[in-house]
Amino acid sequence: MTFWSRTYAIFWKDLRAELRSRETAGTTVVFALLAVLTFSFAFDPAAGQARMVVPGVLWVTVFFAGMLGLGRSMATERAADAFSGLLASPAEPEEVYAGKFLANLLFTGVVELVEVPVLMALFRGSVAGPVLWLVAVLALGTVGYVAIGTLLAAVATSARASELLLPLLLLPVAIPVAIGAVEATAALMAGGSPEEWMLWVRLLAVYDVVMLALPQLLFRYLLEA
């Protein structure tokens, strides 16, 4: 058994549970669409505000929808005391983290896949810069957010009011990724020069590296706590 086979087992389990229940993806996608719809009433799409509004709406919605999924993902483990079962199994905590991270990444990616076209259509948004770089920004922002979110969701689930604690823990730590992702998205939508968005892309990349490395050091202690 290798790191990847055990990581895959955990990823497979989360995916399978989601395919059966559709609890996480269903709820988060509906939440994201409702949020986008609400924003479309608050800001007039016809007023040419798309480039100003869309980046913020996109990432705020992704963050809050993602938070619902992150909390849910860890709550299922706590409900059956399955973290104890995982700790007693041959799986290392880092493998548990990696499996949960990949599953959360997939669920958040599904939210974005549904949300982004609807957002663009509602706000009549367009991307003046290279679309592939926008995809890269979406990927980098999501990886960073889900990486730290998975870690902090594990912390929050051990508390009694976990659903209240997770936003309090996660949102302050996610400020750099929020700024980087919104600024990069805005620059790409406006068709700014590569220097404008590359700065933010670099910030996102560094944030991702740090947030992916941190759980390798901390997740073991959080699970055992």
Partner: peptide
């Protein structure tokens, strides 16, 4: 607890 997942 049986370490069993409800949805599976």
């Amino acid at each position: 607890q049986g370490f069993l997942y409800d949805n599976l």
